[in-house]
């Protein structure tokens, strides 16, 4: 028979967990999916999964949530390719504040360039790059993306090189306008 105190503790406990991890998972997903709305959808799915089939060994809950949400996001990506391209990323919103001191403006620019450079990467390469950044190792990235573990290094090297090239190109073509 479930005790009342057990239930109260459980309810509070799960809420605490939700409050702690929801924002960070959402941010990772926004990065991956390019849209805040899609990120929240996938984040919700992730926490329902956590609730319905909690991991037996929760000592790395953050890692579990990252892996599961990335898996769900990747499925989402593959079936929502064109829709995502049309949505405005929340990073652009967050970065779009027009007024502010010099540094703020530079920061805002960098974020915009980053987002644009990321958009130019092939989907799989971008996913690898972002998943690595979020802390996954090659084995985990391979599992989520379906890429062979041996190829992850090659894709990462290529993605970062392309990211840098595109970023510099975008920045270069923008510099003239700034003055």
């Amino acid at each position: 028979m479930p005790t009342i105190t057990g239930q109260v503790a459980g309810q509070t406990g799960f809420r605490e967990l939700f409050d702690s991890y929801y924002p960070v998972i959402c941010r990772q997903l926004t990065c991956l999916l390019g849209s805040r709305a899609a990120a929240e959808d996938v984040a919700q799915e992730t926490f329902i999964k956590l609730y319905q089939s909690p991991p037996r060994e929760p000592s790395n809950l953050g890692g579990w949530l990252t892996r599961v949400s990335a898996n769900l996001a990747y499925n989402h990506l593959r079936s929502e390719k064109s829709r995502r391209r049309r949505e405005i990323s929340s990073a652009q919103h967050a970065a779009g504040r027009e007024t502010g001191p010099e540094e703020e403006l530079l920061r805002v620019e960098e974020v915009a360039f980053t987002r644009q450079a990321l958009e130019l990467l092939p989907e799989r390469d971008r996913a690898c790059l972002l998943l690595k950044f979020s802390g996954m190792n090659y084995a985990e990235i391979a599992r989520v993306t379906g890429i062979k573990e041996n190829s992850v290094g090659t894709i990462l090297a290529r993605a970062r090189a392309k990211f840098k090239r595109e970023y510099i190109r975008i920045k270069g073509s923008d510099d003239g306008v700034l003055l």
Partner: peptide, 24 residues
């Protein structure tokens, strides 16, 4: 290069307000 830019990008996302009560 990529990590530094991505870190800045993540930080910008972080500054967006999160209403976890609505999500909850």
């Amino acid at each position: 290069f990529a990590s530094t830019r991505l870190a800045g990008y993540m930080q910008a996302l972080a500054s967006a307000e999160f209403d976890t009560s609505q999500a909850w």
